[in-house]
Write a protein that binds this DNA or RNA. Structure first.
Lengths: 165, 165
DNA sequence: GTCTTTACGTCAGTCATGTTGACATATATC
DNA sequence: GATATATGTCAACATGACTGACGTAAAGAC
Protein backbone atom coordinates (compact mmCIF):
# COMPACT_ATOMS: atom_id res chain seq x y z
CA UNK A 1 0.00 0.00 0.00
CA UNK A 2 1.83 3.05 -1.20
CA UNK A 3 -1.19 5.35 -1.21
CA UNK A 4 -1.05 8.09 1.35
CA UNK A 5 -4.44 8.26 2.99
CA UNK A 6 -5.36 11.90 3.24
CA UNK A 7 -8.76 13.45 2.59
CA UNK A 8 -7.37 15.36 -0.35
CA UNK A 9 -5.91 12.33 -2.12
CA UNK A 10 -8.33 11.11 -4.77
CA UNK A 11 -6.95 7.59 -4.50
CA UNK A 12 -8.11 7.50 -0.94
CA UNK A 13 -11.53 8.79 -1.88
CA UNK A 14 -11.86 6.08 -4.46
CA UNK A 15 -10.69 3.37 -2.08
CA UNK A 16 -13.09 4.58 0.58
CA UNK A 17 -15.95 4.71 -1.90
CA UNK A 18 -15.29 1.18 -3.09
CA UNK A 19 -15.08 -0.17 0.46
CA UNK A 20 -18.36 1.51 1.31
CA UNK A 21 -19.90 -0.30 -1.63
CA UNK A 22 -18.60 -3.63 -0.37
CA UNK A 23 -20.00 -2.95 3.07
CA UNK A 24 -23.36 -1.71 1.82
CA UNK A 25 -23.76 -4.98 0.00
CA UNK A 26 -22.77 -7.02 3.04
CA UNK A 27 -25.12 -5.25 5.45
CA UNK A 28 -28.00 -5.11 2.99
CA UNK A 29 -27.78 -8.81 2.27
CA UNK A 30 -27.42 -9.67 5.95
CA UNK A 31 -30.53 -7.72 6.90
CA UNK A 32 -32.45 -8.69 3.80
CA UNK A 33 -32.20 -12.40 4.56
CA UNK A 34 -32.72 -12.21 8.32
CA UNK A 35 -36.53 -11.86 8.33
CA UNK A 36 -37.33 -14.72 5.95
CA UNK A 37 -34.82 -16.92 7.75
CA UNK A 38 -36.81 -16.54 10.95
CA UNK A 39 -40.06 -17.56 9.21
CA UNK A 40 -38.39 -20.49 7.46
CA UNK A 41 -37.13 -21.83 10.75
CA UNK A 42 -40.74 -22.35 11.86
CA UNK A 43 -41.20 -24.73 8.94
CA UNK A 44 -37.88 -26.46 9.51
CA UNK A 45 -36.59 -24.95 6.29
CA UNK A 46 -33.53 -22.88 5.52
CA UNK A 47 -32.47 -20.22 3.10
CA UNK A 48 -31.95 -22.75 0.34
CA UNK A 49 -35.64 -23.66 0.47
CA UNK A 50 -36.53 -20.02 0.14
CA UNK A 51 -34.44 -19.62 -2.97
CA UNK A 52 -36.10 -22.62 -4.60
CA UNK A 53 -39.58 -21.47 -3.67
CA UNK A 54 -38.84 -17.97 -4.85
CA UNK A 55 -37.54 -18.88 -8.29
CA UNK A 56 -40.14 -21.56 -8.95
CA UNK A 57 -42.82 -19.05 -8.01
CA UNK A 58 -41.27 -16.53 -10.33
CA UNK A 59 -40.85 -18.98 -13.22
CA UNK A 60 -43.66 -21.53 -13.08
CA UNK A 61 -42.89 -24.58 -15.15
CA UNK A 62 -39.14 -24.11 -14.98
CA UNK A 63 -36.95 -27.20 -15.19
CA UNK A 64 -34.53 -28.54 -12.62
CA UNK A 65 -31.58 -27.56 -14.75
CA UNK A 66 -32.91 -24.01 -15.09
CA UNK A 67 -32.90 -23.86 -11.34
CA UNK A 68 -29.38 -25.27 -11.09
CA UNK A 69 -28.14 -22.62 -13.49
CA UNK A 70 -29.64 -19.83 -11.44
CA UNK A 71 -28.58 -21.07 -8.04
CA UNK A 72 -25.14 -22.24 -9.13
CA UNK A 73 -25.15 -25.21 -6.81
CA UNK A 74 -24.78 -28.92 -7.52
CA UNK A 75 -27.76 -31.10 -8.26
CA UNK A 76 -27.09 -33.08 -5.11
CA UNK A 77 -27.47 -29.98 -3.02
CA UNK A 78 -30.60 -28.98 -4.85
CA UNK A 79 -32.16 -32.41 -4.86
CA UNK A 80 -32.30 -32.68 -1.09
CA UNK A 81 -33.99 -29.33 -0.71
CA UNK A 82 -36.28 -29.79 -3.69
CA UNK A 83 -37.16 -33.30 -2.59
CA UNK A 84 -38.31 -32.01 0.78
CA UNK A 85 -40.42 -29.30 -0.79
CA UNK A 86 -42.10 -31.80 -3.13
CA UNK A 87 -42.65 -34.34 -0.39
CA UNK A 88 -44.19 -31.78 1.93
CA UNK A 89 -46.50 -30.50 -0.77
CA UNK A 90 -45.05 -27.08 -1.55
CA UNK A 91 -43.97 -27.88 -5.09
CA UNK A 92 -45.29 -30.19 -7.82
CA UNK A 93 -43.40 -31.82 -10.64
CA UNK A 94 -44.85 -32.84 -13.97
CA UNK A 95 -43.12 -34.20 -17.05
CA UNK A 96 -42.30 -31.80 -19.87
CA UNK A 97 -44.58 -31.84 -22.89
CA UNK A 98 -41.90 -31.88 -25.59
CA UNK A 99 -39.24 -33.53 -23.48
CA UNK A 100 -40.66 -35.97 -20.98
CA UNK A 101 -37.35 -36.33 -19.17
CA UNK A 102 -37.81 -32.89 -17.74
CA UNK A 103 -39.69 -32.27 -14.53
CA UNK A 104 -41.43 -28.97 -14.73
CA UNK A 105 -41.71 -27.31 -11.36
CA UNK A 106 -44.63 -25.36 -9.98
CA UNK A 107 -45.76 -24.09 -6.62
CA UNK A 108 -48.83 -25.65 -5.07
CA UNK A 109 -51.32 -23.43 -3.28
CA UNK A 110 -49.48 -24.17 -0.09
CA UNK A 111 -46.20 -23.25 -1.78
CA UNK A 112 -47.65 -20.04 -3.14
CA UNK A 113 -48.84 -19.08 0.30
CA UNK A 114 -45.42 -19.61 1.83
CA UNK A 115 -43.74 -17.81 -1.03
CA UNK A 116 -45.95 -14.82 -0.46
CA UNK A 117 -45.36 -14.84 3.27
CA UNK A 118 -41.59 -14.94 2.81
CA UNK A 119 -41.26 -12.51 -0.03
CA UNK A 120 -43.72 -10.04 1.42
CA UNK A 121 -41.16 -8.92 3.99
CA UNK A 122 -38.52 -8.49 1.36
CA UNK A 123 -40.84 -6.61 -0.96
CA UNK A 124 -41.79 -4.35 1.93
CA UNK A 125 -38.12 -3.63 2.58
CA UNK A 126 -37.56 -2.72 -1.04
CA UNK A 127 -40.76 -0.69 -1.20
CA UNK A 128 -39.60 1.39 1.77
CA UNK A 129 -36.11 1.86 0.39
CA UNK A 130 -37.40 2.81 -3.06
CA UNK A 131 -39.94 5.21 -1.63
CA UNK A 132 -37.37 6.97 0.55
CA UNK A 133 -34.75 7.13 -2.17
CA UNK A 134 -36.93 8.28 -5.06
CA UNK A 135 -37.34 7.15 -8.65
CA UNK A 136 -34.06 8.58 -9.88
CA UNK A 137 -32.10 6.83 -7.16
CA UNK A 138 -33.83 3.56 -8.05
CA UNK A 139 -32.58 3.89 -11.61
CA UNK A 140 -29.06 4.43 -10.30
CA UNK A 141 -29.40 1.45 -8.00
CA UNK A 142 -30.44 -0.73 -10.92
CA UNK A 143 -27.52 0.42 -13.04
CA UNK A 144 -24.91 -0.25 -10.39
CA UNK A 145 -26.37 -3.61 -9.39
CA UNK A 146 -26.45 -4.73 -13.00
CA UNK A 147 -22.80 -3.79 -13.29
CA UNK A 148 -21.98 -6.01 -10.32
CA UNK A 149 -23.65 -9.03 -11.86
CA UNK A 150 -21.74 -11.33 -14.20
CA UNK A 151 -22.37 -10.39 -17.79
CA UNK A 152 -24.03 -13.75 -18.49
CA UNK A 153 -26.94 -13.00 -16.19
CA UNK A 154 -27.60 -9.38 -17.07
CA UNK A 155 -30.04 -10.41 -19.76
CA UNK A 156 -32.37 -11.53 -16.99
CA UNK A 157 -33.04 -7.85 -16.35
CA UNK A 158 -34.43 -6.36 -19.54
CA UNK A 159 -34.33 -2.63 -19.97
CA UNK A 160 -37.71 -1.11 -19.47
CA UNK A 161 -39.37 0.16 -22.59
CA UNK A 162 -41.66 3.16 -22.97
CA UNK A 163 -44.46 1.28 -21.24
CA UNK A 164 -42.46 1.25 -18.09
CA UNK A 165 -42.88 4.56 -16.41
CA UNK B 1 -53.65 -12.30 -5.52
CA UNK B 2 -56.44 -10.10 -6.72
CA UNK B 3 -54.26 -7.82 -8.84
CA UNK B 4 -54.80 -8.11 -12.55
CA UNK B 5 -51.42 -8.27 -14.18
CA UNK B 6 -51.48 -6.00 -17.17
CA UNK B 7 -48.77 -3.63 -18.30
CA UNK B 8 -51.04 -0.68 -17.59
CA UNK B 9 -51.79 -1.66 -14.01
CA UNK B 10 -49.53 0.26 -11.66
CA UNK B 11 -49.80 -2.48 -9.03
CA UNK B 12 -48.21 -4.87 -11.45
CA UNK B 13 -45.45 -2.43 -12.26
CA UNK B 14 -44.72 -2.03 -8.60
CA UNK B 15 -44.70 -5.78 -7.96
CA UNK B 16 -42.41 -6.34 -10.91
CA UNK B 17 -40.09 -3.56 -9.82
CA UNK B 18 -39.85 -4.94 -6.30
CA UNK B 19 -39.14 -8.46 -7.54
CA UNK B 20 -36.42 -7.16 -9.79
CA UNK B 21 -34.85 -5.55 -6.76
CA UNK B 22 -34.91 -8.83 -4.89
CA UNK B 23 -33.31 -10.62 -7.80
CA UNK B 24 -30.69 -7.96 -8.40
CA UNK B 25 -29.59 -8.37 -4.81
CA UNK B 26 -29.50 -12.15 -5.09
CA UNK B 27 -27.46 -12.24 -8.29
CA UNK B 28 -25.13 -9.44 -7.25
CA UNK B 29 -24.35 -11.13 -3.96
CA UNK B 30 -23.91 -14.52 -5.60
CA UNK B 31 -21.41 -13.19 -8.14
CA UNK B 32 -19.76 -10.83 -5.69
CA UNK B 33 -18.78 -13.65 -3.35
CA UNK B 34 -17.82 -16.23 -5.97
CA UNK B 35 -14.33 -14.93 -6.78
CA UNK B 36 -13.06 -14.56 -3.20
CA UNK B 37 -14.55 -17.94 -2.34
CA UNK B 38 -12.32 -19.55 -4.95
CA UNK B 39 -9.20 -17.90 -3.52
CA UNK B 40 -10.18 -18.76 0.05
CA UNK B 41 -10.53 -22.41 -0.88
CA UNK B 42 -6.81 -22.50 -1.69
CA UNK B 43 -6.08 -21.55 1.92
CA UNK B 44 -8.65 -23.97 3.32
CA UNK B 45 -10.75 -21.02 4.39
CA UNK B 46 -14.35 -20.10 3.75
CA UNK B 47 -16.47 -17.02 3.45
CA UNK B 48 -16.60 -16.60 7.21
CA UNK B 49 -12.83 -16.15 7.30
CA UNK B 50 -13.09 -13.51 4.64
CA UNK B 51 -15.62 -11.53 6.63
CA UNK B 52 -13.39 -11.57 9.70
CA UNK B 53 -10.31 -10.57 7.74
CA UNK B 54 -12.20 -7.85 5.96
CA UNK B 55 -13.63 -6.16 9.02
CA UNK B 56 -10.49 -6.48 11.11
CA UNK B 57 -8.56 -4.94 8.24
CA UNK B 58 -11.08 -2.16 8.03
CA UNK B 59 -11.18 -1.52 11.78
CA UNK B 60 -7.75 -2.31 13.22
CA UNK B 61 -7.87 -2.76 16.98
CA UNK B 62 -11.53 -3.69 17.04
CA UNK B 63 -12.74 -5.98 19.80
CA UNK B 64 -14.27 -9.42 19.52
CA UNK B 65 -17.64 -8.11 20.55
CA UNK B 66 -17.49 -5.37 17.90
CA UNK B 67 -17.02 -8.14 15.39
CA UNK B 68 -19.88 -10.17 16.80
CA UNK B 69 -22.18 -7.18 16.51
CA UNK B 70 -21.29 -6.66 12.88
CA UNK B 71 -21.44 -10.28 11.78
CA UNK B 72 -24.51 -11.17 13.86
CA UNK B 73 -23.31 -14.66 14.61
CA UNK B 74 -22.66 -16.39 17.91
CA UNK B 75 -19.30 -16.17 19.60
CA UNK B 76 -18.86 -19.91 19.19
CA UNK B 77 -19.14 -19.59 15.44
CA UNK B 78 -16.75 -16.70 15.42
CA UNK B 79 -14.28 -18.24 17.80
CA UNK B 80 -13.60 -21.23 15.58
CA UNK B 81 -12.89 -19.08 12.57
CA UNK B 82 -11.00 -16.41 14.50
CA UNK B 83 -8.98 -19.05 16.32
CA UNK B 84 -7.82 -20.51 13.01
CA UNK B 85 -6.83 -17.11 11.69
CA UNK B 86 -4.84 -16.32 14.84
CA UNK B 87 -3.19 -19.71 14.92
CA UNK B 88 -2.16 -19.51 11.29
CA UNK B 89 -0.72 -16.05 11.74
CA UNK B 90 -3.20 -13.88 9.86
CA UNK B 91 -4.49 -11.98 12.89
CA UNK B 92 -2.94 -10.89 16.19
CA UNK B 93 -4.66 -10.26 19.49
CA UNK B 94 -3.46 -7.89 22.19
CA UNK B 95 -5.15 -6.86 25.43
CA UNK B 96 -7.02 -3.57 25.50
CA UNK B 97 -5.29 -0.64 27.15
CA UNK B 98 -8.16 0.60 29.28
CA UNK B 99 -9.91 -2.74 29.56
CA UNK B 100 -7.50 -5.64 29.63
CA UNK B 101 -10.27 -8.19 29.21
CA UNK B 102 -10.63 -7.13 25.61
CA UNK B 103 -8.57 -8.65 22.83
CA UNK B 104 -7.92 -6.05 20.23
CA UNK B 105 -7.67 -7.58 16.78
CA UNK B 106 -5.27 -6.62 14.02
CA UNK B 107 -4.12 -8.08 10.75
CA UNK B 108 -0.54 -9.27 10.50
CA UNK B 109 1.42 -8.59 7.33
CA UNK B 110 0.33 -11.99 6.09
CA UNK B 111 -3.27 -11.11 6.94
CA UNK B 112 -3.02 -7.78 5.20
CA UNK B 113 -1.70 -9.47 2.09
CA UNK B 114 -4.56 -11.94 2.00
CA UNK B 115 -7.09 -9.22 2.70
CA UNK B 116 -5.80 -7.25 -0.22
CA UNK B 117 -5.82 -10.25 -2.52
CA UNK B 118 -9.41 -11.07 -1.62
CA UNK B 119 -10.84 -7.59 -1.59
CA UNK B 120 -9.04 -6.52 -4.72
CA UNK B 121 -11.42 -8.55 -6.86
CA UNK B 122 -14.41 -7.08 -5.13
CA UNK B 123 -13.10 -3.56 -5.39
CA UNK B 124 -12.46 -4.13 -9.09
CA UNK B 125 -16.04 -5.29 -9.52
CA UNK B 126 -17.36 -2.18 -7.82
CA UNK B 127 -14.95 0.07 -9.70
CA UNK B 128 -16.26 -1.29 -13.01
CA UNK B 129 -19.88 -1.00 -11.98
CA UNK B 130 -19.43 2.53 -10.67
CA UNK B 131 -17.55 3.61 -13.76
CA UNK B 132 -20.18 2.23 -16.13
CA UNK B 133 -23.09 3.61 -14.14
CA UNK B 134 -21.78 7.10 -13.46
CA UNK B 135 -21.57 9.28 -10.37
CA UNK B 136 -25.25 10.06 -10.19
CA UNK B 137 -26.21 6.41 -10.33
CA UNK B 138 -23.73 5.68 -7.55
CA UNK B 139 -25.51 8.21 -5.34
CA UNK B 140 -28.81 6.48 -6.08
CA UNK B 141 -27.29 3.11 -5.36
CA UNK B 142 -26.06 4.35 -1.98
CA UNK B 143 -29.46 5.75 -1.09
CA UNK B 144 -31.35 2.60 -1.92
CA UNK B 145 -28.86 0.30 -0.22
CA UNK B 146 -28.95 2.41 2.93
CA UNK B 147 -32.72 2.10 2.92
CA UNK B 148 -32.43 -1.69 2.79
CA UNK B 149 -30.17 -1.80 5.84
CA UNK B 150 -31.62 -1.95 9.33
CA UNK B 151 -31.80 1.49 10.82
CA UNK B 152 -29.34 0.56 13.58
CA UNK B 153 -26.49 0.11 11.12
CA UNK B 154 -27.06 3.09 8.85
CA UNK B 155 -24.83 5.25 11.01
CA UNK B 156 -21.90 3.19 9.75
CA UNK B 157 -22.27 5.05 6.48
CA UNK B 158 -21.87 8.74 7.23
CA UNK B 159 -23.10 11.24 4.69
CA UNK B 160 -20.25 12.70 2.75
CA UNK B 161 -19.42 16.28 3.54
CA UNK B 162 -18.19 19.00 1.17
CA UNK B 163 -14.79 17.33 0.92
CA UNK B 164 -16.34 14.39 -0.79
CA UNK B 165 -16.69 15.12 -4.44
C1' DG C 1 -32.55 -49.99 -34.23
C1' DT C 2 -28.59 -49.48 -31.85
C1' DC C 3 -25.66 -45.79 -29.80
C1' DT C 4 -24.77 -41.71 -27.44
C1' DT C 5 -26.17 -37.90 -25.01
C1' DT C 6 -29.11 -35.53 -21.90
C1' DA C 7 -32.19 -34.70 -17.74
C1' DC C 8 -32.71 -36.12 -13.56
C1' DG C 9 -32.19 -38.85 -9.34
C1' DT C 10 -29.54 -41.16 -5.66
C1' DC C 11 -26.01 -43.12 -2.46
C1' DA C 12 -22.08 -42.37 0.45
C1' DG C 13 -18.97 -39.50 2.54
C1' DT C 14 -17.02 -34.94 3.77
C1' DC C 15 -16.62 -30.05 5.09
C1' DA C 16 -17.82 -25.23 6.50
C1' DT C 17 -20.61 -22.64 9.12
C1' DG C 18 -24.16 -21.79 11.71
C1' DT C 19 -26.91 -23.07 16.25
C1' DT C 20 -27.83 -23.91 21.76
C1' DG C 21 -26.50 -24.51 26.46
C1' DA C 22 -23.32 -24.89 29.98
C1' DC C 23 -19.23 -23.66 32.16
C1' DA C 24 -14.49 -21.16 33.02
C1' DT C 25 -11.43 -17.16 33.65
C1' DA C 26 -9.85 -12.75 34.07
C1' DT C 27 -10.93 -8.18 34.75
C1' DA C 28 -13.88 -4.22 35.72
C1' DT C 29 -17.16 -2.00 38.50
C1' DC C 30 -20.28 -1.03 42.30
C1' DG D 1 -16.57 -8.67 48.44
C1' DA D 2 -20.18 -9.29 45.15
C1' DT D 3 -21.66 -8.73 40.62
C1' DA D 4 -21.29 -7.85 35.83
C1' DT D 5 -18.70 -8.01 31.57
C1' DA D 6 -15.39 -9.71 27.76
C1' DT D 7 -13.83 -13.56 26.13
C1' DG D 8 -12.97 -18.46 25.46
C1' DT D 9 -14.23 -23.36 25.43
C1' DC D 10 -16.61 -27.98 25.40
C1' DA D 11 -20.13 -30.95 23.57
C1' DA D 12 -23.73 -31.84 20.46
C1' DC D 13 -26.27 -30.76 16.52
C1' DA D 14 -28.42 -28.91 11.80
C1' DT D 15 -28.05 -26.94 7.28
C1' DG D 16 -26.31 -26.66 3.06
C1' DA D 17 -22.62 -26.88 0.32
C1' DC D 18 -19.16 -30.27 -1.99
C1' DT D 19 -17.13 -34.67 -4.80
C1' DG D 20 -17.49 -38.93 -7.14
C1' DA D 21 -19.83 -42.74 -8.66
C1' DC D 22 -23.73 -45.02 -10.39
C1' DG D 23 -28.67 -45.61 -12.30
C1' DT D 24 -32.74 -44.71 -15.31
C1' DA D 25 -35.50 -42.98 -18.73
C1' DA D 26 -36.05 -40.42 -22.70
C1' DA D 27 -34.24 -37.87 -26.72
C1' DG D 28 -31.51 -37.49 -30.71
C1' DA D 29 -28.05 -39.10 -34.12
C1' DC D 30 -26.50 -42.35 -37.39
Amino acid sequence: MTDVKTPTNPLFLREEELRQGIELLFFAYRDFTAEPDAILAEYGFGRAHHRVIYFVGRNPGMTVSDLLTILRITKQSLSRVLGQLVEEGFITQRPGLQDRRQRLLELTEKGTALERQLTERQRARFAGAYRDAGAEAVEGFRKVMLGLIDEADRARFPLRGPGWR
